[in-house]
Amino acid sequence: MDSHISIKDLNVYYGANQALKSVDLEIPRNQITAIIGPSGCGKSTLLKTLNRFHDLVDNTRVEGEVKFDDIDIYAPDVDVTEVRTKIGLIAQRPYLLPMSIFDNVAFGLRIHDMTNRREVKGHVEKYLKLAGLWDEVKDRLTQPATSLSIGQQQRLCLARGLAVEPEVLLGDEPTSALDPISAKNIEGSLKELKSQYTIVIVTHVLRQARRLADYVVFMYLGELVEAGPASKVLSSPKDPRTKAYLSGEM
């Protein structure tokens, strides 16, 4: 397997609580990996170690190794903003920046020193198209982003995340706040994007994992119980805990 991110002996502590226990995981390149498991099992915690969002919270300690290609993203000489540029995140709910539709997408480009207006415009258009939003917003780019519907807002966040050209896209239950049609749109985009990006999503919807995932990771109580190709893990799980979860007994 060609792994894009490789995690070794990862432990995460919130104060005295251990949220992740010695996790080892290889995340395959250009596939959709779904992290599943019951609430509080450490799915989101695992996801947030990948773009170093734990740095933002006091009293959180991350131990172990997270290698992105060959670089340990927790090494002291690594620039965290670069990590987050390469490994983008789509949040659970669309959080907009207080600016126009256009500027929401252009924001990431501008903070990374893209100053040529035509270039910025080209990128904004390209990624709005990739997120499937261009046709709906092309005539109202200067309007505030809050004027969009919530489904459109989430696709705008997707475009914003894509515009800085990451290699990995993380999604923390990216469709959980959306109506079924908007959710389907986002799922469609993710499927199209996987040829160019490595995608990791956290989901508590098993059917979504079945629809989307090439690779499935099952977590329980901070432990990684089972990981493997979706067809195997979802249809013939080895571990009894995975079986119990998949059959709805957990």
């Binding site: 773009n51 969002f53 933002l56 903003t81 670069e82 987050r84 540029t85 983008g88 995140l89 949040a91 709910r93 959080y95 907009l96 920046l97 207080p98 924001f107 990431g108 903070i111 990374h112 966040c157 914003r160 995340g161 515009a163 800085v164």
Partner: peptide, 11 residues
């Protein structure tokens, strides 16, 4: 989430 929105694109 608003802070994270900016941080997530490398701000």
């Amino acid at each position: 989430g608003v802070r994270e929105a900016a941080l997530a694109v490398g701000a």
